[in-house]
Simulated scan of single mutants.
Amino acid sequence: MSDLALAQNHAFQLARTLMVPVTLFRSGNEFGVLPSDELEDGEVEAIAEFDPFEHRPAH
């Protein structure tokens, strides 16, 4: 599993646990995740947002 795939999986699980949208972002060579409402537009290099209230396949 790639680092990005692992980060996406953890971000999805965190969104489901917290029941808030989270944003997966890149900072240098690392990935991070924060609740989406804590980020300003353009503050980080966003990769994806995971919303636990959207009904879509996990994969």
Score class of each variant (00 low, 15 high):
residue 1 M to W: 01
residue 1 M to L: 07
residue 4 L to M: 11
residue 4 L to G: 04
residue 5 A to P: 00
residue 6 L to I: 11
residue 6 L to H: 09
residue 8 Q to N: 06
residue 10 H to L: 09
residue 10 H to D: 08
residue 10 H to I: 08
residue 10 H to A: 10
residue 10 H to N: 13
residue 11 A to C: 09
residue 11 A to V: 05
residue 14 L to A: 08
residue 16 R to Y: 02
residue 16 R to A: 08
residue 17 T to Y: 12
residue 18 L to M: 10
residue 18 L to E: 11
residue 19 M to E: 14
residue 22 V to T: 05
residue 23 T to R: 05
residue 24 L to T: 01
residue 26 R to M: 09
residue 26 R to T: 08
residue 26 R to D: 03
residue 26 R to P: 01
residue 28 G to M: 06
residue 29 N to P: 01
residue 29 N to G: 14
residue 29 N to F: 07
residue 29 N to H: 13
residue 30 E to T: 11
residue 30 E to I: 02
residue 30 E to F: 04
residue 31 F to R: 05
residue 31 F to K: 09
residue 32 G to P: 04
residue 32 G to Y: 00
residue 33 V to D: 00
residue 33 V to M: 13
residue 34 L to R: 15
residue 34 L to C: 11
residue 35 P to F: 05
residue 36 S to I: 05
residue 36 S to W: 02
residue 37 D to R: 15
residue 37 D to Q: 14
residue 37 D to G: 05
residue 39 L to E: 06
residue 40 E to P: 00
residue 45 E to M: 12
residue 46 A to S: 14
residue 46 A to R: 13
residue 47 I to G: 02
residue 47 I to F: 01
residue 47 I to C: 03
residue 48 A to R: 09
residue 48 A to S: 10
residue 49 E to A: 05
residue 49 E to L: 03
residue 50 F to D: 00
residue 51 D to T: 08
residue 51 D to P: 06
residue 52 P to D: 02
residue 52 P to F: 04
residue 53 F to M: 11
residue 54 E to W: 08
residue 55 H to L: 12
residue 55 H to D: 13
residue 56 R to E: 13
residue 56 R to S: 09
residue 57 P to G: 15
residue 58 A to P: 01
